[in-house]
Design a protein around this nucleic acid. Structure first.
Lengths: 220, 220
DNA sequence: GATATATCTTTGATCACTCAAAATAGGATA
DNA sequence: TATCCTATTTTGAGTGATCAAAGATATATC
């Protein structure tokens, strides 16, 4: 069985790999993301390669093998189902569940996971709109625009928030931008680095581009 | 923060200490209970003593300190609340939850624990009738008789089952002896090493003494 | 092309936990 | 009292994960 640390590396690697868009993930990125020194990352990645979970090219970078990706998706499934459970059943705030799930994702057996899935009625996304991999390791993928690249003046619905930082999530909540909310992007100003939006029942709001880029939306 | 292993030793020590009735717990018992070699047990217990979690007398034995007992009870609380949750909310069978809780007890934060407690309506016992320590570390204690020492011919109610072995728990379930069931001990036969019981709606049943001793009952 | 810089790998060490096997202490037995 | 047996402790070693710091390698800059 994969150790807790191994599961964490694989999950992180999966995330970095998305960000890297098919390219090899640099060791520096792994080290930074795992909060370890570069030497530690190199050592661990070599061990993962030894177990056939990743392909590693010295001084090139690392990429998940099919086997590693499968395991990563399984961890991700546990993480996201747990998050949804914590919000929907236990009533925790969505800003705190990522941290909690970080622990629980390693302690949940397949049996408990299946029961959780059943209790939650086989959901496809977690409270942040992140897709939940199926038990067979398939990740339902939607193509979503963000507030910085969706159409202006058209009503869209928030579908996903790409940042687990509690402060950011609380901000999103406070300004009624949680997944499910409908809104319209009124205009963008490249010079001011800002995006202005409006929605029913709530005051207009202007966000900086980097924050706006984390709010993904779908057509309604 | 106490490591996972430390939590397991403390929990085990708490159990052995009950069994030992106030006496020092022998290192052999610790090793056997933790499934490690005697040398490992000695090394760990010395480390626990170093952290002030136990009092250790070389070649004498070990006992939890106040600090150690408090932590042990906190682990026990997590374990038992999780067990109840798994049975009542997720619908797992009572014979399999001990094993599951063994993992989860180390992954549950105080925040989640409090929510769990609330969801379960502040229960005082787990599915096996084991008392759940309060958040302040108080263990509600009842004095219970067992099927081998309760009154004959009087109706009693099953209150606790003192064995987490899945096969035993399934047996108990199959013969309708779960906590809450009412029954009458008809007679005991020291020579045959047997205890015979009857209950409403179910056939009479005879148990060996060692099995009967694990079923604790209270007056109704 | 030579050098500087950022990134990566290696090396040597440590920590927590574990085992196997040798050494030791105490109580029981003769 | 001397010996034996059993429980316990010690010793030496290994694993998984980590760090600090030294060494190596590309890549960018001049």
């Amino acid at each position: 069985m994969a150790t807790r640390t191994v599961e964490d590396y694989l999950k992180t690697l999966y995330g970095e790999q998305q960000r890297a868009g098919g390219e090899l993930v640099a060791m520096g990125a792994v080290a930074a993301s795992m909060n370890v020194t570069p030497g530690t990352a190199t050592a661990m990645v070599k061990a993962l390669a030894e177990s056939g979970l990743v392909d590693y090219e010295p001084r090139g970078g690392v990429r998940l093998s099919a086997k590693g990706e499968k395991l990563a998706l399984h961890v991700l499934r546990r993480h996201r189902l747990v998050e949804l459970f914590l919000v929907q059943v236990l009533g925790l705030d969505w800003s705190e569940v990522d941290e909690e799930a970080e622990e629980l994702e390693h302690a949940i057996s397949d049996k408990v996971l299946a029961k959780l899935d059943e209790l939650l009625k086989y959901p496809s996304v977690d409270p942040h709109g992140d897709p939940i991999p199926s038990s067979r390791g398939k990740l339902p993928s939607r193509t979503l625009a963000s507030l910085v690249d969706c159409d202006l003046g058209r009503t869209v619905r928030v579908a996903r928030v790409m940042d687990q930082n509690p402060a950011f999530l609380q901000f999103v909540d406070r300004h009624h931008l949680k997944p499910g909310t409908e809104l319209v992007v009124r205009h963008r100003d490249a010079i001011a680095d800002a995006v202005s939006i409006t929605s029913k029942n709530h005051p207009a709001l202007t966000l900086g581009t980097s924050a706006a880029a984390k709010i993904l939306v779908e057509a309604v």
